[in-house]
Simulated scan of single mutants.
Amino acid sequence: MDHIPFGDTPVSRCHFYRRVCDLPANVDPPHLGRIVMKAEHVWAMVLPAHLGQAVKTNMQQRGSDIGPILSHPRSNRWAYLVRPDIPDDVRLFAEMFRLNVSVVRTGGTVALPSPADHAAQFRRWIEPPRCMFRPSGLVVVDAIRACSAQYRPVRRWAAHV
Rank of each mutant, 00 (worst) to 15 (best):
T57L: 15
D88S: 07
R91M: 11
L47Y: 13
P115A: 10
K56L: 15
V42D: 01
E40C: 10
P29L: 05
P29S: 10
R34F: 01
M59Y: 00
F97A: 14
V36P: 00
P129F: 08
R105E: 03
D2C: 07
G52F: 11
W125E: 08
C131Q: 09
E40K: 13
R91Q: 12
M132C: 10
R145M: 00
M59W: 04
G108M: 04
N26M: 10
P30I: 15
H31Q: 10
P128Y: 08
M96R: 07
G7E: 08
K56P: 03
P24D: 08
L112K: 00
L138C: 08
F133G: 02
P10A: 06
M59L: 04
M96F: 06
R13M: 12
H72T: 13
S102H: 02
A158M: 09
R124C: 15
G107Q: 01
M37A: 01
H118E: 14
V141G: 01
Q150W: 09
P87M: 00
C21T: 02
V104G: 11
R156D: 12
F97Q: 08
M37Q: 15
A54N: 03
L81M: 13
R124I: 11
A79K: 10
Q150S: 03
S71V: 03
N58L: 02
C14W: 04
L32Q: 14
V42F: 01
R34I: 13
V140N: 00
T9S: 08
V110G: 14
I66Y: 05
S71W: 10
W157T: 12
L99R: 15
F6T: 15
